[in-house]
Design a protein around this nucleic acid. Structure first.
Lengths: 135, 135
DNA sequence: CAGTATCCCATTCGATACTG
DNA sequence: CAGTATCGAATGGGATACTG
């Protein structure tokens, strides 16, 4: 009754302010520099060793790979299996929980791909306004 | 032919390593501390003034609100309208591009709400393993 | 091989004060 | 009202070296 028209904005399906905090929490969790990359690689490979992950993710340092994996393991998104051989062998794979994250992540990725150029265009236009404002 | 069974992991719908970078870019864009909150509030209110946003988002500083809004405006997700009255009046609203982000964000939010407790449980269990390891 | 430990720089963010 | 300017603390993250 309050809504005016289009239905573009379904006010009742937009989470409340309070509920929103859980989204924030998750974004904070996966929104860092490497987490999505690690999840993505594991999503395509089922099981990978530490060194394979390191090779698969261009530019990541050992430190950040370790920290990222540990964070994902801590939250139950990744399972870590140690084979105490010499040399050691450690395998990583997504848990069911981790696998379930792929879908919403795909949705976001699809959005990113679809609107990527729009964003870049808007960005350039915006930056243009700001340069040589006096000239 | 290579896939084994379940279909849980649809390998062909998981973006390639290269494509994945666009997801990273977007995550970096919206994954900061306040952006999702601002988008969420605007998603529920159509148009808001600066001071209304400030009041609606608990804990945000003027500085961060300004920076967040400017970033969103720059990327074409938010439209900023100035009414040069005295005192000045500035209104913010989501653009069509910004509105289109709501849906994938909702998917992520739904995932967060659904699995929030699983994550916390996993986290506690993980932390338990690490405490008093010698005792 | 699979990490840890350390150093250090860059960025982020909050607090505070000021302005058109 | 709607910001901007400045400072300082905290955090993120890379490089390098070392270890079981």
């Amino acid at each position: 009754m309050i809504e005016t028209d289009t239905g573009v904005r379904n006010i009742d399906v937009v989470p409340s302010h309070g509920e929103c905090k859980k989204a924030i929490e998750i974004l904070a969790r996966i929104g860092d520099k490497w987490t999505v990359m690690v999840v993505g690689v594991l999503a395509r490979n089922d099981t990978l060793r530490y060194s394979e992950l390191h090779r698969s993710i261009e530019g990541i340092s050992q430190r950040m790979l370790t920290l990222t994996l540990k964070g994902l393991e801590r939250d139950g998104l990744v399972e870590r299996t140690i084979y105490p051989t010499i040399p050691p062998r450690v395998e990583y794979k997504l848990t069911d929980l981790g696998l379930s994250l792929i879908e919403p992540l795909r949705a976001l990725h699809a959005w990113a791909v679809t609107h990527h150029s729009s964003i870049l265009t808007a960005r350039e236009a915006f930056d243009m306004q700001r340069v040589v404002p006096g000239t």
